[in-house]
Design a protein around this nucleic acid. Structure first.
Lengths: 332, 332
DNA sequence: CTGTTAGCGCCTTCAT
DNA sequence: ATGAAGGCGCTAACAG
């Protein structure tokens, strides 16, 4: 692999001059530029990004930490971030946090140590204090799906309480009185917020929250299944089911159908997130939009603006969920 | 950020000694090791990965290039690779090739320039020659979903012709005679292979391939929809439909249902890939397994073995697809 | 406009 | 077992 030194020798100029034409950030005469370019071409020279970032302390790459690499939710997010950044010639280094504190911290350190110019984090297990501290460091940070006091200007998030409220209110408006709820893991803040919204909607109609109709799932399809089966085995009647994400709702519908029920005539089911496939289930899933694509985009734009001084954005921190009515919720 | 120098000063030893305890690759007396560790702790020292890889020419990270970041297929693949590698303390740098040659090349260069110890590539637009050339370089390469003569030992791939054959044969065995086909983009080799398998199955039964019942989609749900609608508008009758992936099959089913047809009684539909959600569609999708998880895993193991000398694997290059019978294909 | 000279933070012989 | 010294490939003042 040819180095900048080889090029300088072949072109008969100094290292600095080669560096100048490579980065094209200073005046170089047309003649010498041509010579250098020619040498670069001949040697098939490619700048060593490692050396470059060691010397310059920037890397033209931003680190992205997501909980998982798998699944439509994070997939959409990563794709949006990567797309926006690459248009600006920046690269993305992706790591997974797996939803536990140790790995999230390790992921952050990895990205920091790799010389990322900025970090976009979707973390759930790490403490607020840790994040505030992180923001004091000299690598700019932006948080997705999390609101932390004191660094609000770095946070891009969804009003999950409202989302939970909208989902349940929609069901109640169709006349349902006995509604079950399948939640995500309760250690997650957004999960608790969605649940709070659900309770608010119930309370507003004077309905009590029934522990027997509550199930804590893990956001995977199978736990939607498990939830429904649990409810039925237990025998408490219910006519509607609100799920904390679309995946569990799909699993729930599948389980209900296996029991010979039809959706929505026998059971209404509500999802959450509106990611990709809910319109391809049968019946099409009614859900609440989680504008993860826009949030990812926004995070990328923030970085472009504040770190690379490219473009102009009015950053919107809080996003508002919207009801998406399809066919899985019926009147009673 | 503390450097190795700061640590050496505080511990009262030389740079070299600190380096030794950090990498713990040479004898260091217990006493001095303790001193160093203590200083590292106090200074909250974290090795700079950039500097380390510039000096040592390794980075403990492997580059992964996929076509897209989005979708269940690549999501599964990335997750498997990342999982296997991180267990061994290695990290993953992910880039997207977007299915076009320019970006695929650029992605490869980016990963190479970032000092990856090895590359795992899922590329489709770059030429065989380019890949052969790449393998001559000093960064080990492994290819997923592609077979290239001359570097067969670096290839992990699926017998797609067989997969296409199995899908269509299954449909024919149920008595169907008029079967439509929705393909992926024909510039992709694996897409052409699946189609070839389809044709072989037809030929085996003495059936002609009907251009009017062929549609070239793009692997997205919507093109499954478009395909079905096209077939119907055109009026040529068919009782079964084979799709080149599950996403298009979902779209196709949705479109058929919107036209008042029921699956599989009015129309049988076959998918391909068996990724994640086909068991949550209604009816559950019959499909052909594409063991992408195992292939990803295998790629990671290959790297672990050949690049990091960790573990032992019998690498299997060619994977065999299997028929997965669920509920979307019926007898005629 | 171009060249010289220090580093960036770390690893790795080579001595001791 | 430990230290000194020379890079790794490139950037960024500072001169000229």
């Amino acid at each position: 692999m040819a180095t900048i030194y080889d090029v300088s020798v072949m072109a008969g100029v100094s290292l600095a001059t080669v560096s100048r034409v490579v980065n094209n950030n200073a005046k170089v005469s047309e003649k010498t530029r041509r010579k250098v370019l020619e040498a670069m071409e001949k040697l098939d020279y490619r700048p060593n990004a490692i050396a470059r970032s060691l010397a310059s302390n920037r890397s033209d790459s931003v680190g992205v930490l997501v909980s998982q690499l798998e699944g439509p939710y994070y997939g959409t997010m990563m794709a949006k971030i990567e797309g926006a950044l690459r248009e600006a010639g920046k690269h993305v280094i992706i790591a997974a946090g797996h939803g536990n504190e140790a790995e999230e911290r390790e992921g952050v350190e990895f990205l920091l140590n790799r010389g990322c110019d900025a970090l976009i984090l979707d973390v759930e297990s790490v403490s607020d204090d840790y994040l505030v501290e992180l923001c004091r460091g000299d690598t700019p940070i932006v948080l997705i799906n999390r609101y932390v006091d004191g660094i609000a200007d770095r946070c891009i998030f969804l009003d999950n309480e409202l989302g939970g409220y909208l989902a349940t209110r929609h069901v109640l408006e169709q006349g349902h009185q006995q509604v079950a709820y399948i939640s995500g893991p309760l250690y997650k803040l957004d999960v608790r917020q969605r649940l709070a919204g659900h309770k608010r909607a119930l309370a507003e109609r004077g309905l009590a929250f029934d522990e027997a109709l509550f199930f804590e799932g893990d956001f995977q399809e199978d736990s939607g299944r498990a939830g429904v089966n649990g409810f039925f085995e237990q025998g408490r009647p219910f006519t509607a089911l609100v799920c904390a994400n679309d995946g569990m709702a799909s699993g729930a519908i599948a389980a209900a159908m296996e029991r010979g029920l039809s959706v929505p005539s026998d059971l209404s089911v509500m999802g959450y997130d509106n990611v990709r496939f809910p319109q391809y289930t049968t019946p099409k899933l009614s859900t609440v939009s989680n504008p993860i694509a826009q949030m990812g985009q926004m995070a990328a734009l923030w970085v472009l603006k504040h770190v690379y001084q490219k473009g102009e954005v009015t950053v919107v921190g809080e996003f508002v969920p919207e009801l998406v009515v399809r066919d899985s919720v019926g009147k009673i």
